[in-house]
Structure formats: C-alpha cells, structure tokens
C-alpha cells in the first residue's frame, strides 16, 4: 500500500518547466530513492512534497490526506519530516534546542509552557545518542562540524516521530565512515517502520539501501523498479551518460 502518492505534478518557474507531469508512489515501510541527473527536478519534487513550494498542478497524497498546497508546518504535522541538501542548523541555539524546535507544541496553552520540558529533553537525548552526538547536547549548534550538523538534522527530523522521512542527499559532504554510520541508522529506523524517500547521488548507497528506485529526467519519471533492474536499464544509462 502506498504511503505517499505523487500524481501528475507540474511545476513551472517562469518559462522553465522544472517538473513535468511527474507521478510515483512510495510504499509504506519502504526505502525509496529518487535519482536522476542534475536538473532532473528531484529537489523541486521534494520541496513540493514538503510544502516549501506550491505545484503549478498535480497532487500530493499521504495516505488519505491531501497535502497539496498545504503550508510546510501543516505537512510536518501530518508526519512528514525532511532534511535539507546542505544541513540547516539553527546556529545560535544549542543542540538540544534544535531538537525541541523540531517537535513544536500545538495549541495555545502548550505554546506557553516552558521551552524545554523534561520529557522532551530525554527524548532528544535518546535520539542524539542514537545518531552518536549526545555528548554535544548543550553545545551551540554552529560550533559543530559539518558531519555533526548532518547528524543533528537527521536526529531532529525524528523528534516528532514521523511516518515518512525525506532525506535530501544524506551523503553530501559526509566522509565514508560517517556515511556508513548514517546508512546503518536509516536501516535501523526503517526496520522499526519508518518510510524513507531519499534523493541521492551516491549510487553505491542508493543500490544498497533502496527497495525501489525512481529515476527522474527532465522533470518526469523515466522509470522505476528494484535497484538491480534500474541499474541495467538502457534509458537510465542514456539519461546519465547520453549513451546507450
């Protein structure tokens, strides 16, 4: 059963059609990767799913809920978390504050409560421990290394216990040892039921993690299927290398 369904998505930026009738779905409990050459429209699709840009037309469905055109905070509250291509930490806040911000209070009365409640701190510490940066909990986020910032963003996305996590290039700017660590955490979470949609250029990682690979080119879906089938697809080679 699909958790996320993207239907006939179109996005125009002025005269440029960045996404051109893109449709695909993400099975519940799967790790699905979105790949394609630069400019294929992957990040635009990501931004449309998470609500930071509105599609020209088309729909985004999460289970029974229609996410199309909703504000990003509302989409997050439906259980969709996302990371950014370049880690975006709130530098003047501590690591724990970054974590708690990612699970904001709902409703007037809870908004007036103490900024960090004890149970939130312990949940944050659990997740920081899970990604391996619990010792940095009270450090200012801007003092972290780039890799640590990636880990912080990854952990923060998990704070509200999302159903679907969108990862925009988890391997970007990350050394091989850390990447190993991150992909192990993704698999751990996936085993516990979290669905992933990943934009990634590192093919080795894509082929190892994914259950399904969706290949985009020129704003549309070129093909999709299990990694080993996609890997030998002529159209994919053509899109990437211009040869087939």
């Amino acid at each position: 059963m699909p958790l996320l369904e993207v239907r006939d998505l179109i996005k125009d930026f002025g005269g440029l059609r960045a996404v051109d009738g893109c449709s695909f779905s993400v099975e519940s409990g799967s790790i699905t990767s979105l790949i394609g050459p630069n400019g294929a429209g992957k990040t635009t699709v990501f931004n449309i799913i998470s609500g930071t840009i509105k599609p020209t037309s088309g729909r985004v469905l999460l289970g029974d809920a229609d996410l199309t055109g909703q504000a990003p905070h509302a989409i997050t509250r439906h259980g969709v978390g996302r990371t950014f291509q370049i880690a975006r930490e709130l530098g003047d806040m501590t690591v724990v504050e970054n974590m708690v911000v990612a699970a904001p209070a709902r409703g007037l009365l809870s908004v007036l409560r103490r900024d960090i409640l004890a149970r939130e701190r312990s949940r944050a510490m659990e997740l920081l421990d899970f990604v391996g940066i619990a010792h940095l909990a009270d450090e200012q986020a801007k003092n972290l290394s780039y890799g640590q910032k990636k880990l912080l963003e990854f952990a923060a996305v998990l704070m509200p216990a999302p159903r679907l996590v969108l990862l925009d290039e988890p391997s970007g700017g990350v050394n091989p040892a850390l990447l190993e660590h991150i992909s192990a955490r993704i698999e751990d979470l996936n085993r516990s039921g979290v669905t992933f949609l990943i934009v990634e250029h590192n093919m080795e990682l894509v082929m190892r993690l994914s259950h399904t690979v969706v290949v985009m080119a020129h704003g549309d879906v070129l093909t999709h299927g299990p990694p080993d089938a996609v890997q030998v697809d002529d159209a994919v080679l053509d899109a990437y290398l211009g040869v087939a």
């Binding site: 905070h73 509302a74 975006r88 709130l90 904001p104």
Partner: peptide, 13 residues
Amino acid sequence: EDETKAEVAGINT
C-alpha cells in the same frame, strides 16, 4: 534564525 527551517520543523511561523 531561519524562517524556512522553522516552518518545515512544524512551526506555524
């Protein structure tokens, strides 16, 4: 600090 980040984190900015 970062309004887009805050919004994506679930805050009704």
